[in-house]
Simulated assay, not measured.
Amino acid sequence: MKYLAVAIGVVAMLLGGLWFLQGTGLVTIAPILCVAECEALEGPSLPWAIAGLLALLFGAALLWRSLRRR
């Protein structure tokens, strides 16, 4: 169970960091695969920055807690 928590924490931190960087406008990535009409995120987006920060903090807390447990 510890290894699963570590893996989820790392993935959440990586995705959260990417979402935060995209939300602040520091990174732009074009859509790769779209089901409908997709557009790249233009400029900063506060909801994506907040979601990324929350995911990053969740992943860090989960990683810290799973590595701290005995």
Rank of each mutant, 00 (worst) to 15 (best):
L56C: 06
A61G: 09
R70Q: 14
P47V: 12
M1R: 09
V6H: 05
F58K: 00
G25V: 08
E39A: 10
L41S: 02
P47N: 10
K2I: 14
A61Q: 01
A7E: 07
L63W: 13
V27P: 01
L54Q: 03
C38E: 07
L54V: 14
V10L: 15
G16F: 00
F58Q: 00
S66M: 01
A60C: 02
C38F: 07
V6M: 13
P44F: 11
A36D: 14
L46S: 10
A51Q: 07
W19T: 09
E37C: 02
A36I: 08
A61S: 11
S45L: 04
F58D: 06
S66D: 04
V27T: 11
A7D: 06
L46E: 12
G43R: 10
I29W: 03
Q22V: 15
P47A: 14
A12H: 03
A7R: 03
C38S: 08
T24F: 00
V27K: 05
Y3C: 03
G52S: 11
L26P: 00
R65C: 05
I32S: 05
L67E: 11
W19Y: 15
L33M: 04
G52Q: 08
F58T: 07
V10S: 09
F20N: 11
L56V: 02
W64F: 11
L4N: 01
V10C: 14
E37H: 08
C34S: 14
G9M: 07
A12Y: 05
W19I: 07
A36P: 00
G23K: 10
A61L: 06
I50Q: 02
